[in-house]
Simulated assay, not measured.
Amino acid sequence: MNVRAMFIDMDGTLLKSSNTISSRNMEAVNSLINQGVKVFLATGRHYEVTAPYHKEIGLRTPMICLNGAAIHDAVTGKTMQTKTVRLNEERFHHLTAVNSWNVIIHTANGVYCKETNEEIDYWTKVGQIPPRYIGDLKQANYQDVLKYSVRTGTPCPKISAIFNTEAEVIDWHDGFELLAPNVSKWSAIKSLLQEFRISPSEVVAIGDGPNDIEMLRYVGTGVAMGNASDKVKQAADFITGHHENDGLAQFIERYLLKSKQSYAI
């Protein structure tokens, strides 16, 4: 396996449920970097809650954030590329306001949300930047939306399908997310591969969520975590261990580190 780059999802992949990087995962990633492989983070998180982990690992590569809607410079954190999504706002807010769903809107200037919760409190703690607005989003003065996140608590594919003509839809077990059409982690990866002159065939991507399916499918080697759904696993070439059991490190150690394998896959 001739690998020049690896793109790693964060939640459910790099991180344990405690939002920490295990020493084994850290060691495996650093060994890969020392071997000359470029390692990138590709996450649904926004920049402020990605950068601390990027720094902890010591990465020097751009960060793919918000499922590919933003790419941030490794050093300055400035956006290298953004893709904004435009919805029929009146219809969107009418649909979401009549239900007891939380709505989180990620913009180029920060996060706006209907109400706060444990996850948003964590974002504020890690990113050290609170939401710009909490309350009735019809009254919020936001622009340049990169991602809408609707937390319904249950799968809602019939509701999310309403937005198929306006946006790229990602369905989760507890809601859905909306991005600009044709935006994904894979679309951002393609952009970076052109910049670094790396072929998709020389790339490994690893993840566990529905937002990872495209990148797992289209890179040279796609790896699904053991905690991924069957749909995600079907898009992958390999399935590794659970994120609580260092599945990321398991794959790197077994297949990518020169000292531990013979490149005969």
Results as ranks from 00 to 15, higher is better:
198 I>F: 06
242 H>L: 00
247 G>Y: 07
253 E>K: 01
224 A>V: 04
199 S>L: 09
197 R>P: 00
189 I>P: 06
190 K>A: 10
226 G>T: 14
195 E>Y: 05
230 D>H: 09
169 V>R: 10
170 I>Y: 11
177 E>M: 02
240 T>D: 06
212 D>F: 02
164 N>Q: 14
239 I>D: 05
205 A>N: 08
172 W>I: 00
167 A>P: 11
229 S>H: 03
209 G>Q: 15
223 V>I: 13
172 W>N: 14
178 L>V: 12
236 A>H: 02
225 M>L: 13
198 I>K: 12
221 T>M: 05
166 E>R: 03
252 I>K: 07
235 A>K: 02
174 D>R: 13
233 K>G: 01
210 P>Q: 12
184 S>G: 11
181 P>S: 08
228 A>K: 07
244 E>P: 06
164 N>E: 15
207 G>N: 11
165 T>H: 13
198 I>H: 10
191 S>H: 14
187 S>N: 09
236 A>N: 04
224 A>L: 04
175 G>S: 10
162 I>P: 00
191 S>K: 09
204 V>H: 03
232 V>K: 06
206 I>W: 04
224 A>R: 08
252 I>F: 02
164 N>A: 14
184 S>K: 06
173 H>D: 15
241 G>P: 01
192 L>I: 15
200 P>E: 09
185 K>D: 05
177 E>V: 07
211 N>C: 10
176 F>G: 06
198 I>G: 10
174 D>H: 14
253 E>Q: 11
211 N>Q: 11
241 G>L: 12
219 V>H: 00
